Simulated scan of single mutants.
Amino acid sequence: MKNSTAEPAARGKRIGVVLLQLGGPDALESVEPFLYNLFCDPDIIDLPLAFLFRKRLARMISSRRAPHVQEFYRKIGSRSPILKLTFRQARALECELQKNINAKVLVCMRYWHPMTEAVVDELRREQINRVVLLPLYPHYSKTTTGSSVNEWKRVSAKKGLRDIGVSGVEEYCEHPLYIGALVRNIQIALARVPAQDRSKVHLVFSAHGTPMKLVRSGDPYQQQIIRSYNAVIREGKFGLAHHLCYQSKVGPQKWLEPSLTQTIEGLARERVTHVIAVPIAFVSDHSETLWEINMDMRRRAKEMGIRYFDMSPALNTNPMFVRALADVVLQKVRA
């Protein structure tokens, strides 16, 4: 990437790029307050008159779920790796952006530290002239990117942050470099399969699910997931059976289907022996990949008779993914 791709005026300004991410507990004792923050979010719990009881409901749900959730965090090191991995992504992105613009990349977590108030304060200290909000969610949903942007607006208004221009990236679900990074990681996983068995592999693309109520309200997340899935299949030319499913359901509402569990059960009934799971909506490793797919589902798949189960690597600091992030930022800066 050449420096000439950035406008001269943009190179003279100090650009703050804020990575918006979910966050995760940094210790077992952080699980319950993390869950409380999650279920206190008005973009998550949006029932009629919910403002009257949201905090009480969040307290009840988080206290009940915490012991169970702590168990699978205990299996992946007693903390989420998402903060460490997101800081690595931030450093890699900053190095890439510095080829073109004077950029400072900051990490902003929605439900655990560093949270929005701390990041807004840091922007002031860093004397940033302009901010680009960059969600580490390639697919837009009201409950992810929408929630983080709403929180940014609330905190910015509270702190009187009016002297810094802010623009935001909504989605990049079909960005060629993002798709290429996913294809490359699938190729890495396929290379681990003995050559004589590769034709037996079924690729199972697993995205985080959402309630059907959200889909019916017009949330674009599912359609963007499908667009990414189709683009990866088209670009990868794998010549293998492939499936799209959803995971991580919480609560009694009907969620997107088929679920990851339903998909693996169906493949086992069809006597499929080789599966590679592809975490399509996750850009770094955390509990949904490390525990839910790579440990729990791996164990269950084996019990169902699937002899070979693997997961393609998460994107993390995949160079193509970092370049995709840099490109969407530069597009915003030049706009």
Rank of each mutant, 00 (worst) to 15 (best):
A324E: 05
V322S: 01
V272R: 05
K302P: 00
H286W: 05
A301Q: 05
L260A: 11
N318Y: 07
F282T: 02
A281N: 05
L325M: 10
V272W: 11
G305C: 07
S284M: 05
A314Q: 06
V272C: 11
L260T: 09
G266C: 13
E288F: 02
R300Y: 04
E265I: 10
T317D: 09
V283P: 00
V272Q: 13
L256V: 10
M304Q: 10
Q262W: 06
E303R: 13
I306F: 03
H286I: 06
N294T: 03
R298D: 01
L260M: 14
N318Q: 13
V283M: 01
P258T: 12
E303Q: 11
A281Q: 02
V278E: 01
R307N: 12
S259E: 12
G305D: 00
I293D: 00
S312A: 14
T261C: 07
R307K: 14
A281G: 12
I280K: 02
R307A: 11
T261L: 15
R300D: 03
L315F: 04
A281S: 15
I276E: 10
T263R: 05
L290Q: 02
T317H: 01
Q262V: 01
M297L: 06
R271E: 15
R323F: 04
M320W: 02
Y308V: 11
T317R: 03
L256K: 09
G305A: 08
A301G: 10
T289W: 01
L315R: 03
V322F: 06
L267D: 06
R323E: 13
Y308T: 01
G266T: 12
F321Q: 08
E265V: 13
D310Q: 07
K302A: 15
R300W: 00
F309H: 02
N316V: 09
P313Q: 12
A281F: 04
V275I: 15
V322A: 07
W291Q: 14
P313Y: 04
P319T: 03
D296C: 08
R299Q: 14
E265G: 06
T289N: 02
P258K: 06
V272K: 09
R300I: 08
